[in-house]
Nucleic acid binder design. Structure first.
Length: 470
RNA sequence: GGCGACGUACCCAAGUGGUUAAGGGGGAGGUCUGCAAAACCUCUAUUCACCGGUUCGAAUCCGGUCGUCGCCUCCA
């Protein structure tokens, strides 16, 4: 089976064929850096990261671009409220965002362009739209895209523009548009707002144009994959398509992938309702970042996912099961003949994993393949039927699959002399069959959040950090 | 009102025409272990929201009903 994706544009499951064989260009709509992003936002970034990792694992050379929106209404409002510049506010939350990405093991995109550093590219696009009659100016210096000039408008969202409930949901016309459905490419200058002096006049860019300008700049006028949350389909991505294709005359994006919402208590997690969590809130509750990653990753990207304490607890147990297996393999020593059936198991597992993810990133059967492998390996570890080399091969497969999942490998633990000393003492006590002393040391280690377990391969320790404490 | 997604065990969730309905979590019992933990084994849906229909056969196809969520405005 070959790799297939459900394309939002048209809704069909399509075989994936990159424009250039062996190479993939991905653009992901990134954050607006006016505040720390919440867990719902990160669901879509974890999804994009899974996509990127899986494509890379499958042998594609991937170029991943994610924008940083560092000028918009909310940033301007926030900067004014704090008495800082929009640059200062945006820098602060960009740093915060990058930290959040790192902790969630979302590998940094290859390019993270900022809107304010690409004004010339946006202006160039707008000039072409003005020249071709797809855009028009209004009295205040704003420039709008004329939807009536683009018959394909609404194809992505399967929305008939004439059916929009004008007046009820569509904002009243502030800028003197010809048609209320037309969207801003450029916003004329206003007192107290940042403004750029350009060939199309004074002002600042609209939201949609930045993604067109920056994706075209780094991936070309036509590229393979574009991701975002389901809420960006309309109007954001619809507008991107219209303005990009109208400006370049070329088909914009081949495949659009949209991630469903993270829900909280049955409703979309959003800052607006106040019902949301940030990653740091989850960490403070005692869950590690890879538990959070697992919780966001374990459901199919197109299915809405309810974010709850139960989901996190379940993720914590699952993650612990995976890393315990890896740890057991790393510590395993057995001088014996190789397990003749191991190669077959490794091949079957890799194949089932690939087959699942090839099917529109169907994560559940992919994880099932991993867990079935773990159960089988745990059985062989317990029965001591693996050789030391077999254990290393099994561990290597887990690590290989974890290049895609990034949840199995435990975070490196900072060395701790006190813990090391207690562990060594306990090992000595056990060797001397001094059970009372060994048990006392185990209790002391537990107080330091270190769980000690005894196995056929000796004492094993791990941090008690995946589960909520208290 | 228009458009879209969805309803499978205690929870999450795969499965889109045909042998025993994946997997994870949780729970119950057991094995192993100095003890503990981890791990392993067994059990935990004669049934897939409901009602009709098509078919030799449906969780899977068709029609209807009920319910949930999202988009149509800024939003991941």
């Amino acid at each position: 089976m070959t790799l297939r994706f459900r394309n939002t544009l048209g809704g069909a499951l399509e075989p994936f064929e990159p424009l250039v064989a062996g190479r993939v260009g991905i653009y992901s709509c990134g954050p607006t850096v006016y505040a720390p992003a919440h867990v719902g936002n990160f669901r879509s970034f974890v999804f994009a990261d899974l996509l990127r990792r899986y494509l890379a694992w499958s042998g594609f050379q991937v170029r991943w671009v994610m924008n940083i929106t560092d000028v918009d209404d909310k940033i301007i409002r926030g900067a004014v409220a704090e008495g800082v510049t929009i640059g200062q506010l945006a820098d602060r939350y960009t740093e915060r965002f990058l930290d959040d990405l790192d902790r969630l093991r979302i590998a940094r995109p290859d390019v993270m362009p900022r809107a304010t550093e690409h004004i010339p590219q946006m202006v160039a696009l707008i000039e072409r739209l003005l020249a071709s009659g797809h855009a028009y100016r209004t009295d205040d210096g704003s420039i709008f895209f004329r939807i009536a000039s683009w018959p394909a408008y609404g194809r992505l969202a399967r929305l008939d523009p004439t059916q929009q409930r004008v007046g009820e949901r569509v904002e009243a016309d502030e800028y003197g548009k010809d048609d209320v459905r037309d969207f801003a490419l450029w916003k004329g200058p206003r007192a107290g707002e940042p403004s750029w002096s350009t060939s199309i006049g004074e002002g600042r860019p609209g939201w949609h144009i930045e993604c067109s300008a920056m994706s075209i700049e780094y991936l070309g006028p036509s590229f393979d994959l574009h991701t975002g949350g389901i809420d960006l389909i309309f109007p954001h991505h619809e507008d991107e398509i219209a303005q990009s294709e109208a400006a370049t005359g070329k088909p914009f994006v081949r495949t659009w992938l949209h991630c469903a919402h993270l829900q909280m208590r049955g409703e979309k997690m959003s800052k607006r309702t106040g019902d949301f969590s940030r990653p740091t809130d989850i960490y403070e509750r005692g869950y590690s970042s890879r538990v959070l990653r697992y919780a966001l990753l374990a459901a199919h990207y197109r299915a809405s996912l309810d974010f709850s304490e139960a989901a996190l607890a379940s993720a914590a147990s699952a993650v612990e099961r995976l890393s315990t297996c890896l740890q057991a393999l790393d510590g395993y020593r057995q001088d014996r003949r190789a397990d003749a059936s191991l190669d077959g198991l490794l091949t079957e597992t890799r194949s089932a994993f690939r087959q699942a993810l090839d099917d529109d990133l169907n994560i559940a059967p992919a994880l099932a393949a991993v867990f079935e492998f773990v159960r089988e390996i745990n059985r062989r570890v317990a029965e001591r039927t693996l050789s030391t080399e077999d254990a290393a091969s099994a561990a290597a497969l887990l690590r290989e699959l974890d290049q895609v999942l990034a949840v199995v490998e435990d975070d490196a633990v900072a060395p701790d002399d006190e813990v090391d000393r207690l562990l060594a003492e306990r090992a000595k006590a056990r060797a001397a069959r001094d059970w009372a002393r060994a048990d006392a040391l185990r209790v002391r280690l537990a107080a330091l959040d270190v769980i000690v377990e005894d196995t056929a391969d000796g004492q094993r320790s791990r941090r008690a950090k995946e589960l909520a404490r208290g």
